[in-house]
């Protein structure tokens, strides 16, 4: 008796929580946002040596054109 009640309660709680979980997780990528936040904060507060200098060095990648008659 008690056991079935507990199971029922559990299902009810699950039913109540699930839709909330679904909306949050599907629509907002919390872990990715956290990762992005950490990266930006580390750079702004200079907590770690930033390694994301992705821009090519100026001059190293200019167009090298060839003229063919």
């Amino acid at each position: 008796m008690h056991k079935t009640l507990a199971v029922r309660m559990f299902i009810l709680i699950l039913a109540g929580l699930l839709p909330a979980c679904v909306t949050i997780n599907i629509y907002f990528p919390a872990a990715a946002a956290e990762k992005a936040a950490d990266r930006i904060i580390d750079e702004v507060w200079q907590l770690q040596q930033s390694s994301s200098q992705a821009l090519p060095e100026p001059g190293s990648s200019h167009p090298q054109n060839k003229v063919t008659p």
């Binding site: 821009l55 090519p56 060095e57 100026p58 001059g59 990648s61 200019h62 167009p63 090298q64 054109n65 060839k66 003229v67 063919t68 008659p69």
Partner: peptide, 24 residues
């Protein structure tokens, strides 16, 4: 970039596909 035609024709070919904008 320029495909030659007529006389004299001249074709200009670029090789670098990624160019720094400020440099350009």
């Amino acid at each position: 970039i320029v495909e030659g035609g007529g006389i004299p024709a001249l074709t200009v070919i670029g090789y670098n596909r990624n160019v720094d904008w400020n440099e350009l």
